[in-house]
Computed example of a mutant assay.
Amino acid sequence: MATNEAEEDDYLSMSFGEPAAQVKENSLQRTARLKKEAAERARPLSKKERGAKEKAARDSALATSMDSSNKGAKMMAKMGFKGGALGKSNDARTQPIEVLVKDDRGGIGLDSEKKRKLRELAEEQEGKEKKRRVGEEEFRMLNAAEREERRTAGMMWSSMRTLEEFEADGVGGSDEGGVPGEQKKVGKVARPLRSINLLYRPLVKQRLEKEKEKRARYDLDQSLSRPAAYSDPDADADDKIALDTEVEEELDEEDAELDEFEALSYAQRLEKIVGELRQKWRYCFWCKYRYASESEMEEDCPGLGEDEHG
C-alpha cells in the first residue's frame, strides 16, 4: 500500500503556471468594438477585393468534387449516371470546364488579338535579331573578301611589272639565273599598244593614260601662264611628238582582246601571268627567283601556287 502511494504523483510538489489573466472589457470598449465590426461589415468591397473573393469562392467550388449530397449529382444519378467521365471515349473530360471571367471592357476576341499581336511582335523581333546576326557575319565575310581582292590585285600588278621587265631586258634565251632588271635598258621604242604582250598590256595602257593626263594638265598650266602672242597654231605635229607634248598612241581605240582579258578576275589574271613567267622565263613569282633550268625549278620550287610556298 505504501509502495502504491509512492508511485502516485505527488501533486503537492508539482508546479502549475499562473492562469492567464482575462481582461474584461468595459462597456465603452465593447461598444467601440461592436461599432468597428459593424463598420467593417458595412464597408463596400473594392473591385479588386470582390474579384479576389469571387475567384476564391469559384476555385473552392471547382476544387470540390461532386458527391451524392450534391444536387446536380442527384439529378444525374436519376438519369443513369454512375460516375466517371462523360461520353463514350476513354479520354473524356472528368473535371468541370474552367470558368474564365472577363474583368475588363474589351471585346470577346480582344485577348486573342492581343496574343496574336504579341506573337507577331516576338517573331518580328526574333527575325530582326537573326538578320542582325546574319548581317554582321556577311559584313565580316565581305570585308575579308574585299581585303583578299585588294591583295590579289596588288600581286597582279606586281607580276605584270615583273613580266614587263623581263621582256624589256630580253634575257629570255639565256640560261643565266637572276632577277629582272639586272641588264641595262637601252631605251623605249614607240610601238602600237596592241603589239604589246596582253598579259602586261593593261599596265602599259594605265601608264599611258596617266602620262596623257599629266601632259594635259601641264599644257593647261602653260596655256594659262603663257601670253597668246607666243602660241604657234601652225606648229608641226611631228615637232610636238618630238618634244613629247602629245601622245602618239590612240588610247580610245577599241581593243576587244584587252577588254576580254580585263573582264577576268584578279586571281585569274594573276594565274595567267604567273604561268607565263614560269613557262617562258623560268621565274617563280612566289620564290622571287629565276631558275637556271626547268629541272632546277622543278626540284627546288615548292609548287605553282601561293599555298605551296607557305
Rank of each mutant, 00 (worst) to 15 (best):
T245Y: 08
T3F: 13
L34Q: 06
A52F: 10
R58D: 11
G17M: 14
E49L: 02
E213Y: 04
A145D: 09
L193A: 03
R290E: 07
S89G: 05
S158F: 12
P227I: 04
G173W: 06
T162C: 13
K288W: 03
V186R: 06
Y283H: 08
E165C: 14
K288L: 09
G154H: 11
A267V: 05
I108L: 11
K35F: 01
E123Y: 05
E49C: 00
A85M: 00
E149D: 12
D239C: 08
R93F: 07
I97N: 12
A216I: 05
K184D: 03
Q279S: 14
E148G: 08
D238L: 08
R140Y: 03
E49K: 14
S112M: 09
V101P: 00
A57P: 01
L142G: 05
E49Y: 02
K35A: 10
D239W: 14
L163A: 11
A145K: 04
E271S: 15
K130M: 08
E164C: 12
G83I: 04
L34R: 07
A73P: 01
R290W: 12
L12R: 15
A216D: 10
V189C: 01
D259V: 01
E249G: 06
E37C: 00
E124T: 05
M141S: 06
K114V: 01
L28Y: 05
S195T: 07
M14W: 12
S13L: 14
R30V: 07
M66H: 06
G127S: 04
M79T: 10
R116A: 04
E149G: 04
L304R: 13
L62T: 06
Q22N: 05
G87T: 10
K115Y: 03
E123L: 00
Y289H: 14
D103G: 11
V274I: 08
E136Q: 00
M297Y: 07
